[in-house]
Design a protein around this nucleic acid. Structure first.
Lengths: 107, 107
DNA sequence: TTTTCATATGAAAAGCTGTTCATATATTTA
DNA sequence: TAAATATATGAACAGCTTTTCATATGAAAA
């Protein structure tokens, strides 16, 4: 049994990381870190087009990174703090320690 | 001061996640989780072409996810356990809790 | 010192992802 | 119920990423 190994396949990781490997989606997540917003409010905050925002929110929701709450004709989105916050903190620590080339400004 | 917020920009996250959002690179990381291997050994283990492996290792190294150790004409690569292991464990936990749609088998 | 082995790299082709546009659906208001 | 508002979705195009191929570089062995 190769057991301390994860039980979740490469494809799943690829989808998870792929979901976060996008500047637009990271902007949406960041916008939602303050508080829940509906789609129109997200568009106002970020300056992105409505259909673009909807497409990306769908993907974020599908991967459990945001949650949707229906309220009349509005759809309020909330960031999954439990995942997103520690994840970004963890990565900050990695970057500070290892990614000198990136932090140095190039690329 | 929006201070508990990360100091590292969206672009850096995009590059970090983008590096891991690829099945080939995840396969390389997985191959290296057992032990350090040189490029030829990685090719044997994974079945990938040498130039493909070199391209991807370069990216992984650049982002601090693997380390390279020169030994004569060989280049031994080691996974960055400190980052990769807890990261994958963390994501497993996220998946188990939120990504039912993915785990259910579709996509 | 020529050949062989190990790895790296640049450029082109193939494949994938993001954005836009047009439009659909669903809810509320007039 | 017609019009307005809020959100979602499919398809096409543009742009980016991955893979392949040809070849370069560098170290070791013959």
């Amino acid at each position: 049994m190769a057991s301390s190994r994860t039980t979740i396949g490469k494809k799943s990781y690829q989808l998870f990381f792929g979901t976060l490997a996008n500047e637009t989606r990271l902007t949406l997540i960041n916008a939602l870190r303050e508080k829940s917003l509906n789609v129109t409010q997200i568009c106002e905050t970020t300056g992105f087009e409505q259909s673009l925002v909807s497409h990306h929110l769908k993907m974020l929701e599908y991967h459990g990174m945001v949650f949707k709450k229906e309220q009349g004709k509005f759809r309020y989105y909330t960031v999954n703090e439990k995942t997103i916050k520690p994840l970004l903190e963890f990565i900050d620590a990695h970057m500070k320690e290892y990614c000198c080339k990136i932090l140095a400004g190039k690329r």
